[in-house]
Amino acid sequence: MTKIEEDLMVRIAWLHYQEGITLSEIADRFGLSRPKVTRLLDKARRSKIVRFLIEAPNAHLLSLEEELKKVFLLEDAVVVPSSEEKDVAYENVGKGGAIYLYRVLRKGDLVGVGWGSTLRYMADNLIPKEEVYDVRFVSLAGGLTVGSFMNPYNIGERLASVYRGECYYIHAPNVVESPELREFYLAERVNRKTFEMAKNARLSFLGIGVVHPQFSTYIKTGFIDTQDMEIIRRMGGVGDIFGQFYDIEGNMLDLEIHRRTIAVSPLELRNMPNVIGLAGGVRKVEAILGAIRGRFIKILITDELTALKLLEVA
């Protein structure tokens, strides 16, 4: 039995036996037939996996997921174990993203992808799915000038190779020198087609940035200096998606850098289905709250301590 099958069985068992969700509702939620759900429950009982996993220390994460969905009106949520080590915490959230992608991905899908450390860990922990192939992945933002580990080009290539598909890129930096240069890149035919694809993705995976001089990717890449970041913070900025900053209520800030940014905007994300935000760490609580309240994301993948803090603040 694979880890994915085990994970699916315990989730179905929890929803049915602990939350009282009907077999039909579970089938709809996971995109399965009702007989398939019944067979999984039978298999869980025969193998005693239900009793073992529901009594396991991490079984409470499933109830946390349900609480997040109820409180924040999310379409779905995944909660993974926390870690005191930053890189391990990011990797755990990335693994959660890989499991979620495996669960929902279909043959021939169109998937939008962002960039960042968490997305890279997701890409590195993907699990091939024999019946799923010919998947198209498309960048949601221009590339970074440094940091190949988390660049959208590398992440997209990894995703496409695992699921035997293609990846389409925005051929431009994420942030350019002037609004005029941004318009030049957006007018390129290949970029216009890529943006159109991105806005029509059935699934979109993205990271959530934080307004902090020590942890912001935009300071590390040189797109913003420490002084500008402090100005954004004083304006009420708490987080960003592809370098587009917002406050804790999900209101976009009026910033000059936005007019130089080449990416799908958070306001456009509102109209796209199945937008999945991957973010962990208590320092990102306000950024996650802003993204949820702004309706920039509809599905959240995070860690246990962050989930608890989100619920406490809410």
Rank of each mutant, 00 (worst) to 15 (best):
T226I: 15
F245S: 01
G209M: 10
S216Q: 05
V210Q: 05
Q227N: 15
G236K: 00
P266T: 01
F242A: 12
A201V: 07
P273Y: 04
K220E: 14
V210E: 08
D240Y: 12
I262P: 02
D254C: 05
D247M: 01
F223T: 14
T226Q: 14
F195K: 01
H212D: 09
I219M: 05
Q244G: 05
T226Y: 14
P273Q: 08
G277A: 10
G239A: 04
L269W: 05
A279H: 06
R234M: 13
S204E: 10
V282C: 15
Q244M: 13
N251W: 02
R270G: 04
M229W: 09
K284F: 08
A201G: 14
I257G: 09
A287W: 00
D228M: 15
G237C: 01
T221H: 14
T217F: 09
G239Q: 04
R259I: 10
G209A: 12
G236Y: 01
S216A: 09
F242E: 12
I231L: 11
R270W: 06
S216L: 04
H212P: 06
N200E: 13
I276K: 10
I208K: 02
K199D: 06
Q227Y: 15
F223S: 13
N191S: 11
Q214C: 11
I276L: 10
T221W: 03
K220V: 13
A287D: 03
L255Q: 08
I241E: 03
I262Q: 08
D247C: 01
F245G: 00
R233T: 09
I257K: 13
Y218H: 15
V210S: 08
D228H: 15
P273K: 03
A201L: 04
Y218Q: 15
L267G: 02
A263D: 13
E286Y: 05
T226F: 14
R202I: 04
R270A: 01
T221D: 14
G250F: 09
V264L: 02
M272C: 04
V282L: 15
N251Y: 00
L289V: 03
N271L: 11
G236R: 01
M229I: 08
V211C: 06
G239C: 07
L278R: 08
V282K: 08
M252P: 11
R233P: 11
L278T: 03
T194M: 12
V238A: 01
Q244I: 11
D247W: 00
L289N: 00
E286R: 08
V238N: 01
T226K: 13
Q214A: 14
F223N: 12
Y246K: 03
L206I: 14
L206K: 07
I257C: 13
